[in-house]
């Protein structure tokens, strides 16, 4: 959380690219690496909101779920390719986030957080109430393995699927980095520090928050589309509150000070899930304890491990 405005592309961009290339070689399975990409992209939307504007969202799973269903229906029923489906899902995510944002950004502080959770819960019950569209608890199946574009590059090979997901993931990270480095990003940063002062400087704080919520919705929906491409299936859990929570936890554990944190958090969480869940089904307890440690002692997440030694910051509460 430096005051100097970050550049793009920078060392972080390179690090993200390097991690995306390295993951399949380091991890035991390509499936795990692909899952991490999906969670990292979804977590990125939380990082954008919390890290750059200071908005805590318990509801990014709503847009994740929307992206998952929209892309699945476009591929299965309209024969669209993966690129168009992912793009359309992101646009749908932006639109829904804009609609919800109209209601959400009118309320401040804790109301904002509660509203994100309430809307996420609403999305879950929507999916449950319209089983003709979403197949309800059974999950939306029979999504064919499509091609990347122009009927070429079928996503039936796991290697190519990973490469395509990595490309989408990298694009999302590049966009977020670009946004943070832009003048728009510095206004967001000033709102995070003090929204009254930003308002006094003449910025329409609500409009900036609205824009951030909209973009974050699009990114979360992209992650949902990636999930559909990976699974060829949309489980009802894609839209439940637990998905929202998982994305948020990944971003927090990695650290919201930098987009890289989302990738680090998703990797740590994915690896923990892979290694611990066969041994101990209740491994989420460890995640919860880790979350407490991060919030109390590591405000910049695992990424900030190196920089917090001997330094204690106390931020003014902003409600």
């Amino acid at each position: 959380m430096t005051n100097a405005s970050p550049r793009f592309p920078n060392g972080t961009t390179v690090a993200i690219g390097a991690i995306l290339v390295a993951l399949p070689w380091v991890l035991p399975s390509l499936t795990l690496a692909s899952e991490i990409l999906v969670v990292a992209t979804g977590a990125l939307s939380c990082t954008l909101l919390l890290g750059s504007v200071g908005l805590l969202s318990f509801g990014q799973g709503l847009y994740f779920g929307l992206g998952a269903y929209v892309s699945a229906i476009l591929i299965r029923d309209f024969g669209m390719n993966a690129s168009v489906a992912a793009l359309a899902a992101s646009v749908a995510g932006c639109l829904l986030a804009a609609a919800a944002g109209l209601l959400i950004v009118r309320r401040q502080g804790v109301y904002f957080v509660m509203l994100t959770l309430a809307f996420a819960q609403m999305g879950f019950f929507l999916a449950l109430a319209f089983p003709k569209l979403t197949a309800g608890e059974n999950g939306l199946g029979n999504v064919p393995r499509t091609t990347i574009a122009f009927g070429k590059f079928a996503l039936s090979s796991p290697g190519l699927l990973y490469a395509f997901l990595a490309l989408l993931c990298f694009a999302a990270f590049a966009i977020v980095q670009r946004i943070i480095a832009s003048p728009f990003g510095s206004v967001l940063n000033s709102i995070r520090h003090n929204d009254n002062r930003s308002e006094a400087l003449g910025y329409d704080v609500r409009r900036f928050k609205f824009a951030a919520v909209t973009i974050a919705g699009g990114i979360a929906a992209l992650a949902g589309a990636m999930n559909t491409l990976m699974l060829s299936f949309v489980p009802l859990s894609a839209v439940d509150v637990e998905t929202s929570e998982r994305l948020l936890i990944a971003s927090l554990i990695g650290g919201v000070g930098s987009p890289l944190g989302a990738l680090v958090g998703a990797t740590v969480l994915g690896a923990m899930s892979d290694f611990l869940s066969p041994v101990w089904p209740r491994w989420s307890m460890i995640v919860a304890l880790l979350l407490i440690v991060v919030v109390l002692f590591l405000r910049d997440g695992l990424l900030g491990l190196g920089s917090v030694m001997g330094r204690h910051r106390k931020e003014a509460p902003n409600g």
């Binding site: 919390l50 200071g54 805590l56 502080g109 804790v110 957080v113 929570e245 927090l252 209740r282 989420s284 307890m285 995640v287 919860a288 304890l289 979350l291 407490i292 919030v295 109390l296 106390k314 931020e315 003014a316 509460p317 902003n318 409600g319």
Partner: peptide, 26 residues
């Protein structure tokens, strides 16, 4: 311990507590 921390921190700590309770009950 969180009374002097920002709201966001209180929310996340109590959220973690809720996970702990839920997992214990499970």
């Amino acid at each position: 311990r969180t009374y002097n921390l920002p709201h966001e921190a209180q929310i996340l700590i109590t959220f973690a507590l809720a996970i702990l309770a839920q997992e214990t009950v499970t």
